Computed example of a mutant assay.
Amino acid sequence: MTDDKIIDIADSVVSLNVRLANLVIDCGDEIGKTMVPLNEVAALVLSNPHVIMTNAAIAGIAASGGIVVVTDSKFQPAGMLLPLDSHYTQGERFRMQAAVALPVQKRIWQQIVRSKIQAQAAVLKRLTNHDGGLPHLSSRVTSGDTGNHEAQAAQRYWPAVFNNPHFRRNREAPDQNRLLNYGYAILRALTARTICGVGLHPTLGVHHHNRYDPFALASDLMEPFRPLVDEAVARIVFEQGDGVPLGKDVKKSLISGITGLIEVDGETRTIFSILAKSASSLVAVYSGEKKKLFCRSGK
């Protein structure tokens, strides 16, 4: 894609159609119509229950490699449309993915957890000028994280990132958890899209195996990127409080926090580029071509 965009339809009653390979967003008022090339739509998020969308729009986004996410009243994903045929060796890769040995899955999860904790440490360093001792925890993560260092890091991380000793990650809480829910929903959708793009199935995870999670692999692969959302939410809360409405401006800030430029291995990349490289490296690990998953650094 030339210019990936995340489009959130939340504040207006709109109709969505396709014209000349463009997604047409018709607000039916003084705003008029907006046209976005289909091949630039990375994700279309439908947060408004009164959206009218044609089959041509749904099919056009999917055919171009984009995704459609429908959220509930709490901005959690209630449904997600992913491209059905996004890679020419998809069937072969599904079978390879299903046959991956448990030791390989555990090694992948070790690398994911280490990268996540390093990213959390970097967020704390930027927000509080102290890393909370998380780099040391990261170095102690073993295969499969049998010592549950991810949870140990979370116990230090969450109270520090919001400067609140009582804060807990709770999806149902009416505080900044609402903003985290929304940001993670966007991140999970982008990750699932990338996984499909390399011919893997987002349901077959390496660690997450919740029978009710249809995107277990996306939940795995997105872990090192969650701190992008956390930092964006923390900055919003510090400025506007934890009761800030999840309106247009807040959503824009969250999306900017996710899609902004990230430094990895001395290079500046977008989330789309990093996720694509991470998913491609996962295929290489599954096939035995590589031992190490490409994960973002903490920078």
Rank of each mutant, 00 (worst) to 15 (best):
G133T: 01
G133K: 05
L134T: 07
P135W: 07
H136L: 14
H136Y: 10
L137C: 05
L137E: 11
S139F: 04
T142C: 14
T142S: 15
S143P: 03
G144C: 08
G144W: 09
D145F: 03
T146M: 10
T146P: 00
T146D: 12
G147W: 07
G147T: 12
N148M: 10
H149M: 14
E150S: 12
A151W: 03
A151Q: 13
Q152P: 05
A153M: 13
A154I: 12
Q155V: 12
Q155H: 15
R156V: 15
R156G: 10
Y157C: 13
W158F: 15
W158H: 09
P159Q: 13
P159R: 09
A160L: 13
V161D: 14
V161I: 15
N163M: 14
N164D: 15
P165T: 08
P165H: 07
P165S: 11
P165A: 10
H166W: 11
R168Y: 09
R168T: 15
R169H: 03
R171L: 14
R171K: 15
R171Y: 11
E172R: 08
A173G: 04
A173V: 09
A173E: 13
P174Y: 04
D175F: 00
Q176Y: 11
Q176K: 10
R178T: 11
R178V: 12
R178M: 11
L179G: 03
L180S: 01
L180F: 13
L180D: 04
N181F: 04
N181A: 10
Y182R: 03
Y182D: 05
Y182W: 09
Y184F: 10
Y184V: 07
A185S: 15
A185E: 01
A185D: 00
A185L: 05
I186A: 01
L187W: 06
L187Q: 04
L187M: 12
R188G: 03
R188W: 04
A189W: 06
A189F: 07
A189V: 13
A189S: 15
T191C: 02
R193I: 06
R193M: 02
C196G: 00
G197R: 14
V198G: 10
G199F: 08
P202E: 03
T203D: 01
T203F: 11
L204W: 02
L204P: 00
H207C: 08
H207T: 05
H207G: 06
H209E: 11
H209A: 14
H209T: 13
R211I: 13
R211P: 02
R211W: 06
R211V: 13
Y212A: 14
Y212G: 05
D213S: 12
D213T: 05
F215W: 11
F215G: 00
A216C: 15
S219L: 02
D220V: 00
D220T: 06
L221G: 04
M222F: 01
E223P: 00
P224Q: 07
P224N: 06
P224S: 05
